[in-house]
């Protein structure tokens, strides 16, 4: 049964996974090529000075990638099952209901984590080609919370789609948006150094949010 659940989610999520990966890699290819052209076109000092002194981020376009990944994953995963209440069928299967929802949430969260993890790894690979370890480390610490923002957005968008009360849906949306803004705050490099563990834990805790909405969805009452 578990494998069947995972396969069903994979069928829904594979195109989102592929699309997000292609989008991210295209952006990184564009960024890497831009850096290469800058290094080839003139002296490297201004590029380094912009990076180290002025904290200009050559990868700033990735800032909202985590949010996009979370939102797209939630929409692709939950939207096909909610308008005609198709998910209720799954929630009434002879299988522990919360375990079933847990598998769904885990599949969605893993999609976000893997896509964002791939983006971080590829960005660090590009960075280490042009810059030394202190820059690679700072870039990693900067981009990690941006990608973590994908989890609260995924969890809250999922909860909002599953919930049956319009007001509660709107507030789930506001909370997801404001939580994401906490992860996207700051304008310099590595601002979250030292508190990444706390923010990571919060992002993981947020994955519990869709369970109560799923219960309300199943019962069809507030």
């Amino acid at each position: 049964m578990i494998r069947a659940f995972i396969f069903k989610e994979w069928l829904k999520l594979r195109w989102a996974f592929l699309g997000l990966s292609l989008l991210g890699f295209s952006f990184l290819l564009f960024t890497g090529h831009g850096l290469y052209r800058e290094f080839a076109a003139g002296p490297a000092v201004p590029i380094w000075q912009n990076l180290v002194e002025r904290q200009v981020m050559f990868f700033s376009g990735l800032k909202y990638f985590g949010v996009l990944a979370g939102l797209v994953t939630a929409l692709v995963q939950w939207l096909p099952d909610t308008p005609n209440r198709g998910l209720r069928l799954q929630l009434h299967l002879p299988f522990p209901q919360m375990q079933g929802v847990g598998i769904l949430v885990l599949c969605g969260a893993l999609t976000v984590i893997v896509v964002c993890g791939l983006m971080i790894a590829a960005l660090l690979l590009i960075t280490q080609y042009f810059f030394p370890w202190p820059v690679v480390r700072s870039v990693g610490l900067t981009v990690f919370p941006w990608m973590l923002a994908g989890l609260p957005v995924y969890a809250m968008a999922g909860a909002a789609l599953l919930d049956i009360s319009l007001l509660r849906r709107v507030i789930y949306g506001i909370i997801g948006w404001q939580m994401a803004s906490l992860y996207l705050a700051g304008c310099g490099y590595a601002g979250f150094e030292g508190v990444l563990g706390l923010y990571g834990l919060m992002a993981l805790l947020m994955l519990f949010a869709p369970f109560i909405s799923a219960e309300r969805f199943k019962r069809g009452t507030l």
Partner: peptide
């Protein structure tokens, strides 16, 4: 699980409201 889920939602609402 719904118990944890409810308090997780309450916790994040509190974080957002208090911030």
């Amino acid at each position: 699980m719904t118990f944890f889920s409810r308090y997780a939602a309450v916790f994040f609402a509190l974080v957002v409201l208090a911030t």
